[in-house]
Design a protein around this nucleic acid. Structure first.
Ligand code: FES
Ligand code: FES
Lengths: 164, 164
DNA sequence: TTTATCGTGGATAATAATTATCCGCGATAC
DNA sequence: GTATCGCGGATAATTATTATCCACGATAAA
């Protein structure tokens, strides 16, 4: 039960994209700046694009930019884009295997209403989802502006400007 | 990002152990009743034991019973026992790779305070943990007593009694 | 128009995690 | 003594994650 590294990669990258409004930043730059694999990072951006989080500019001098306002991009959106939308808990309906049951004529209690254990686990995921939906990229950006030394923020901005 | 099937197996099994007070139930019976692999299920019970959720009775007619009151066993305890206690989000400290940094002299902002993204993801896990800690095995047992037809509960109990 | 750049999708592979089985050991009930 | 059972280690099959490479089409710049 672990998140893919793509979640860390993606969130850090998206943070750099907030400043890039009309223009775009290439995978090459994003990968170089963070010292990660270019080709691997590109796989995650494909998912982010498919989920409407970023949009791409094809061709030379192309790259990526946010597809919508950072206020509307939540941590959950990114997690879901990268990890897929399968629920964390996959119930195998083990209850329907109970040896005392007639497999060809299962009681309503085992087919109609969801298994309580399943329900609790789904609710647990919903708790995490709710929390992550409350954290937007805009919020992250603003917090970082306040907490990281402005000299470093400026240097980052300039590095990307140079390669725009 | 998925829970192992051991979580489903374990929770369903523990439910059957609530009634079994002084005595014990063997893996063989638990596996047979639920139609799952005996040897595989035993691996999860090893973890449940190591984490003090169940205790074992060795030797013939041996088996497992709860190691403590079902009021004190939470869904989270079971998840942690089965999945291990590694955090869901493993931060690779990607921020320390930023190309503009001097790797041999990292700024305090990148080493002292935790990365905000990391912090948010850990908090998200904490949300789920908090919720799952609020759901005890006793609560689950009581809910099931209310919702599942008593004829089925009785039949289950009798099946395990026969093989005790 | 050529050329270099860059996203895109597919193929492929290395590594790790999950799922699953088997077997021998020691403890215990009968 | 013997059959039963938990226990731990070894092992393997399957799947997911991590990672690379390449050919393609689109585009900007020369
Ligand atoms: S049957 Fe799947 S969690 Fe109960
Ligand atoms: S450095 Fe790991 S989440 Fe930011």
């Amino acid at each position: 039960m672990q998140f893919s590294v793509g979640v860390e990669y993606s969130l850090h990258c998206l943070l750099y994209l907030v400043d890039v409004n009309e223009r775009s930043v290439g995978i090459k730059d994003l990968a170089a700046y963070q010292g990660v694999s270019e080709s691997y990072l590109s796989k995650f951006f494909a998912k982010l694009k498919k989920n409407g989080i970023v949009e791409s500019v094809p061709g030379a001098k192309g790259g990526y930019r946010l597809a919508r306002a950072p206020e509307t991009i939540t941590f959950w959106d990114v997690v879901e884009a990268v990890e897929g939308s399968e629920p964390f808990f996959k119930c195998t309906e083990i209850r329907q295997n109970e040896i005392i049951l007639d497999r060809s004529n299962l009681p309503a209690s085992h087919t109609k209403s969801p298994c309580l254990i399943h329900k609790v686990m789904d609710e647990a995921e919903a708790q995490m989802k709710h929390f992550l939906q409350s954290k937007t990229l805009k919020w992250l950006y603003d917090e970082v502006q306040n907490k990281v030394p402005s000299v470093h923020i400026q240097a980052t901005k300039e590095w990307f400007e140079r390669n725009l």
